Each structure stands twice: as C-alpha cells, then as structure tokens.
Amino acid sequence: MDPLSDKLFSARLSDLLSQSERNGCAVFSPFLDERQCAEAEAWCRRNAGGMCYTLYGGYDGARRKMLAFYPDYCQDFIMDEFPMVCLTFTFRKEDKLTHRDFLGSFMALRLKREVIGDIITDEGNAQAFVTEIAAKDIMSSVSKIGRIGVRITDEQPFVLEHEQEFKEIGGTVASMRLDCIVGLAANISRSNAADLIRGEKVDINHFTVTSVSHELKEGDILSIRGCGRFILSGIDGLTRKGRIHINLRKYV
C-alpha cells in the first residue's frame, strides 16, 4: 500500500473498531484481499485493545476474508454471524468455467471487488462467497456465466476443496538475500532483480520490501509483479562451491 492508502485503510479499521466498542456488538468489514488481511492482522495486534477480532472467509484456508470486531460474549457464535453467503453454481461438466469467468460476470453487474470473496471452481460446479446483498443481486440477475447456462442456489454448504497447483523450481543461490532469490524465481540477472525490488515490485508475505539485502527464510511467500507468486519451500544445504540449494513452489 502507498502511504495514503495505508492511512485510509487504518482509518477504516479504526472506525469499525469504534463502532463495535460504542454499540457493544459485532461489526464486519467487506472482503479483504491477502495483503489487506496481513495489514489488518498487524493493525489489530497493536490497536484492538480489549475487543476481540477474527478474520474469516467462509472456510479454512480462504484467501479473501472479512474482519470482525466483537465483544468477548460473542465468541461462541461469531462464526455464524459473518454477513456472507455461499453460492453454488451447477453447469454441464463438459463446459469449462474458470475463476476469471465467474469474477467477470460478477463485475459486469457493477459489483465492487470487496463484496466478493473466494471463488472455487470444479467440473460442473463452482462455489463463491459473497456478501448477503451481492448474493441477492447475483441470484436475481445471473443465469449465465459467459455463454454457459448455470443454476444457482444458496442452500448448499461449502463442499469444494481448493487444491492449489504448483510448479516446482529448484536451483542454487549465493545467499538468502532477496535479490538472489528473485533472480532465481524470475530467471533474471541479479541486477535486474535488484531493479524490481527497488521499484517496489516485490512483496514478501504480502508486504512490499525494497531492500535487496533482505534475507528470506523457509515458508516465506514471494510475489513478483508480472512474474507470479512463490513459496520458499525448502533450503537443502550447500553445494561444494558454497552455494545454497533452495526449492521454490510457484503458484499456477
């Protein structure tokens, strides 16, 4: 986030927290993307005080989530209170529909991205988490995704599993510095990797890092604009020449 966006986002969180404290009830944000979730988590640790908070996207492992602030007496039922709906779409198995197809159809209704959570697709069916208001718009207006006819219901529980596919990348680097690992991930020179980093085009764990000497550790998530997202999945020791063998998993 740029400084202005960061201040506006913090102000939104502060307003939600104040509403919850003032009214003594649960208050919910729209859907947040992964970077906003990380920002919100950090902000809440510093500022939530005696209020409880939870990030939830409808299922374990969701990427897009809502943030809830609430008093402690709400803890036993807060997960059922999130104002989101799971929509289930069915269509012919021979018709292939992607996440992009669904998102495009939703956005064509002039819905904002913040009212749409995760969309998981499978053969012949898909499920999407959306706000309650967006669910009404979609169910009343959508009969096709692209040119493919679909049936929609809000009465089925979430059953699809999001199986993330990866491409394995292995190689050696001189050190665990960010410029070295970006070079391997993007298959570019170390100097070009440094340009990307200084140009604010590289995120670590959803936060922009501009230091080329920042050191990564196993499990870190690396995002490179225009190249993709990677997990540093393994550090496998040294070669005879003292280079470090690492494994990356690229999201596909």
Rank of each mutant, 00 (worst) to 15 (best):
T131N: 04
T131M: 00
E132A: 09
I133S: 12
A134H: 02
A135M: 02
D137P: 01
D137Y: 12
I138S: 01
I138K: 00
I138G: 02
I138E: 00
M139S: 07
M139L: 04
S140R: 01
S141V: 00
S141H: 01
S141N: 02
S141Q: 01
V142Q: 00
V142D: 00
V142P: 03
S143G: 10
S143M: 09
S143E: 13
K144I: 12
I145E: 08
G146W: 10
G146K: 14
G146A: 08
R147F: 09
R147W: 06
I148Y: 15
I148N: 15
I148K: 15
G149L: 09
G149N: 12
V150G: 06
R151C: 05
I152Q: 03
T153Q: 12
T153W: 09
T153F: 13
T153S: 13
D154S: 14
D154Y: 03
E155H: 14
E155C: 10
E155G: 10
Q156D: 14
Q156Y: 13
Q156K: 15
Q156L: 15
Q156P: 02
P157V: 15
P157G: 06
V159C: 09
V159L: 15
V159E: 11
L160V: 02
L160D: 08
L160G: 04
L160Q: 04
L160T: 09
L160H: 08
E161A: 08
E161K: 04
E161I: 05
E161S: 05
E161Y: 08
H162Q: 14
H162F: 05
H162S: 11
H162D: 12
E163I: 10
Q164E: 15
E165M: 10
F166R: 08
F166G: 03
F166S: 01
K167R: 15
K167N: 04
E168M: 01
I169R: 11
I169E: 11
G170M: 05
G170A: 03
G170L: 00
G171V: 08
T172R: 05
T172V: 11
T172A: 06
V173M: 11
V173Y: 03
V173I: 10
V173Q: 09
A174V: 02
A174W: 02
A174I: 05
S175A: 13
S175P: 07
S175I: 11
M176E: 09
M176Y: 03
M176A: 08
R177S: 04
R177W: 03
R177T: 04
L178S: 11
L178Q: 12
L178A: 05
D179E: 07
C180V: 04
C180N: 07
I181Q: 04
I181R: 12
V182M: 04
V182E: 06
G183P: 02
L184M: 10
L184D: 06
A185R: 12
A185Y: 09
A185S: 11
A185E: 12
A186W: 15
A186E: 15
N187Y: 13
N187V: 07
I188H: 03
I188D: 01
S189F: 02
S189A: 00
S189W: 00
S189H: 02
R190L: 02
R190K: 07
R190S: 02
S191V: 06
S191K: 07
